[in-house]
Each structure stands twice: as structure tokens, then as C-alpha cells.
Amino acid sequence: MSEHRARFAAIFDEEVRRHNERFRAVAAVRPGEDVLDVGCGTGESTREAAAAGATALGVDLSAPAIAKARELGGAVFEVADVQTHPFPADTFDVVLSRFGAMFFPDPPAAFANLARALRPGGRLVLLVWQDRDRNEWYSVLRDALAPDAEPPPPGPHFSLGDPGRTRALLEGAGFTGVEFTEVREPVCYGPDAATATEFALGLLDVKQLLRDGDEHAVTRLRDAFATRETPEGVLLGARTWLVTARLSRA
């Protein structure tokens, strides 16, 4: 996935542009703040924080994604596992994560480490997918690739879709005032069906749904995308949560 993420960096950013606009507005990064961007991928959200006047550090587990982020420049980027990385304590005013925090293998450890890195009163802003069944884009993939099969268990990218579970995780790490704001905006898989198909074939959900021996699956996927072509690209319905909280540690 990491090489695919780097190769299709521009499409990944355009895919979630409408959601990112809301994310950026809610984060409201201010000049002079110290910002940690978790799971930054190729660094768009980190660069946006830096452009707002912050000192921004983007971290990700993916070396290819970080290499691409450094190539694009605009901020400081490091390969790091936020579950264990020794961030200096009381260092950051803001922790951001745009579709990155869902992938923590050990969420309590990760959020506890991020809380330690935040200054007292610092804020956390997450953008995460809602539950899988609430996202049309997944239904389009499933109906095209495996219409008659039982779908596999939801992947880790839906792990923070349940507000009750996510609230408990954050409060357990010392965060307070946890709030969820729904965003309903389409995602864009590319300018046309051919590009959307090439992009989608590298996604985790598509790899899970593809069945050996189904030689027509890719054609069905391309046809499904063709019916959703618009002047703005191939658009699929999507729902996310904007999650905000503050560190309560005195």
C-alpha cells in the first residue's frame, strides 16, 4: 500500500479534498503553533499546517510516503511509529491526523503517547471514516467485485467509526470534550473511469474483495465507475467524522 500511496499521491489528496477542507477549517492552525501530523502520508495536511504559520512535523510509518513528502517539501517529515516514538513531552499545541489514526495496532498506547507529547490544553483533531455500511464508496466496490459474496470483516481504516468506542479510547488517554461532527461529501477516485479503476486496484478493500478466477470483476468495476463520471471526476458518496478533543492534563 505504501508504494501505491506514493504513486497516486495527487489522487489520494484529491479523493478527500472536500473532507479535507472541513478538516482544515476545524483544525484552525494558527501562526506560531507547534503541530504534529500523525499518519501524514505524502504530507498535504502537514504542508497546510506549515503554510498557516505553524512549525509542523509530519510522521508516518511508510518510508516511501515520507520520501515523497520530503520530495514535495514544505515541512519536516519523519518515519515514526507514534505508539512508541519518544516525542519530547509537552511539545505540541496540536495533534492532527487525517485518515491516519485508524491504523494504530494498539490505539490506547498510541493515544497515550500523543497525549504525553501535547502541551496541557492542547487539542486533537482527527478525520476518520464512519462505519463501512454508511459509506457508499464501499458499497460500489462490493457490488461490482463480489455482489453475491459475504463481505470480509471491516478493515482497520474503519476502526474509529463507532463514536462510543472512539470516545472511550480518547477519554482513557486523558482527553476531554470529545466531539463528533459528521461530514457528508463525495470522494473522487480520479478524472475518469480508467484512472479510477487503476487507483482502486491498489486499495485494501478492493484487494480483499477481488476473487481468484473472476475475470470479469475489473470490467464490472470500471463500468460502475463509468456510471459515476461527472465533470468533477468519478464521485462516490462518503461519510466521515471530524473528531475534536482537548488534553485535560494540568
Rank of each mutant, 00 (worst) to 15 (best):
V26H: 07
E71W: 06
G73Y: 01
L57E: 06
V79S: 07
R70H: 01
L36M: 07
A80D: 11
V76Q: 14
K68E: 15
T46W: 01
G74R: 06
G32H: 09
A63P: 08
A69W: 01
E78D: 14
V79D: 05
V26I: 13
A27V: 03
R24C: 06
L72F: 07
V29A: 08
T46N: 02
R30S: 15
G32R: 05
R24I: 13
T55C: 10
E48P: 03
V79T: 14
G73M: 13
G39E: 02
A25G: 06
T42E: 11
R70E: 09
A50R: 01
R22N: 08
G58S: 12
A28E: 14
A80Y: 06
A56S: 13
E44W: 00
A25E: 15
G53E: 13
L61T: 14
E44D: 14
G32Y: 08
G32P: 00
A27K: 00
S62Q: 09
G41Y: 01
T42Q: 04
P64E: 12
A69D: 06
G73W: 02
K68L: 13
K68Q: 15
A50I: 05
G41N: 07
A65R: 08
G32T: 06
A56K: 04
S45W: 02
S62N: 09
A56R: 02
D34H: 09
V38L: 10
D81H: 09
K68D: 11
L57A: 09
R70K: 15
R47C: 09
P64Y: 09
R70L: 11
L57Y: 00
D60E: 10
P31F: 12
G74W: 04
G74S: 12
A69V: 01
D34F: 05
A25L: 13
F23K: 05
V26E: 15
L36D: 01
V35K: 00
E44N: 07
D60P: 03
V38N: 03
E44G: 02
G74D: 10
A63N: 00
G41S: 11
A51D: 13
D37P: 01
V82T: 11
T46P: 00
G74C: 12
G43Q: 04
V79K: 05
L61G: 15
T46A: 07
A52Q: 05
V82L: 09
P31N: 14
V35Y: 06
V76K: 13
V82K: 05
T55E: 15
A25I: 08
R22H: 14
D81I: 14
G39N: 02
A51W: 00
E44I: 11
A63Y: 00
R30D: 12
T46K: 02
R24K: 05
V82R: 06
T46R: 04
E48K: 00
A54G: 11
D60I: 10
P64M: 13
G39W: 02
R30G: 10
C40K: 02
L72E: 09
K68M: 15
V38D: 05
C40N: 03
R30A: 15
G43V: 01
A56V: 04
K68P: 05
E71S: 13
R30T: 12
G43E: 01
C40I: 03
R30V: 08
A25N: 07
T42G: 07
V82Y: 04
P31M: 14
A27L: 06
R47Y: 02
S45Y: 00
F77A: 10
R24E: 15
